[in-house]
């Protein structure tokens, strides 16, 4: 049990959360990070789905890594990921139909999410199943954190609500405050993410 949670394994899990974050440092998986964050709820569901898929695809590929011929590894990886995404997409349709309609094609696009291919190629092909599983969860959560931050800011400023509940009191609107409709547009997602990257870099540089 001690070995399962050794120092190295803890680092494998915690590095992608901040210092080696897949979205803001490695610049992977940007497409969906921008597209699903106009509200908080789809951002959370998307973050969870990606975490589950990265963890299990890392685990499966790591288990069969020694039997995959090198030349066709990309196709093998894609098929494993596509099968997992199909399962997740069916579960979403069955239990949270309204969110799955909001996510539309972006659930299917998890297959081509660069975080998955990046982690499979760079980590799961060389490491054991347990480390790969931790690495998958770490990267999935690192991705989910950024989604939640951007989704929170966009929903609060764009609609004055969090998870669909109005949080700004009417008194604020009476004083002349207005919701910024621009925040729900695609353009502001890019600018907000740019600002998140700016803040993250400035913070980490100060610490060094």
């Amino acid at each position: 049990m001690g070995k399962l949670f050794s120092k190295e394994n803890q680092e494998v899990f915690s590095n992608p959360l901040n210092l080696n974050n897949p979205v803001v440092v490695q610049v992977l998986g940007i497409c969906s990070a921008l597209a699903v964050t106009s509200q908080l709820k789809p951002a959370i569901v998307m973050g969870l789905s990606v975490t589950v898929i990265t963890a299990f695809s890392n685990l499966i590929i790591s288990l069969i890594r020694k039997t995959i011929p090198n030349r066709i590894r990309i196709i093998v990886q894609l098929v494993v990921v596509a099968a997992l995404v199909t399962i997740v997409s069916m579960i979403l349709k069955a239990y949270v139909y309204d969110v799955s309609v909001m996510l539309s094609v972006y659930v299917g696009l998890i297959i081509t999410n660069c975080i998955l291919m990046g982690r499979l190629e760079a980590f799961a092909m060389q490491n054991g199943p347990w480390e790969s599983f931790l690495d998958g969860i770490g990267n999935g959560i690192g991705y989910a954190i950024i989604l939640v931050v951007v989704g929170f800011a966009r929903e609060l400023l764009g609609a004055g609500s969090i998870l669909g509940f109005k949080v700004l009191p009417q008194a604020v609107y009476d004083l002349g405050y207005m919701d910024n409709g621009m925040m729900t547009m695609p353009a502001m997602a890019l600018i907000l993410l740019g600002c998140v990257i700016w803040a993250h870099r400035a913070y980490n540089e100060e610490k060094k």
Partner: peptide, 23 residues
């Protein structure tokens, strides 16, 4: 460009402004 904004950060903001123009 300010140092922490260089590279990726400023690129995102540029793309955001381009997207606004396309809107």
């Amino acid at each position: 460009v300010p140092k922490p904004l260089q590279g990726l950060g400023i690129t995102f903001i540029t793309v955001g402004l381009m997207a606004m123009a396309f809107m």
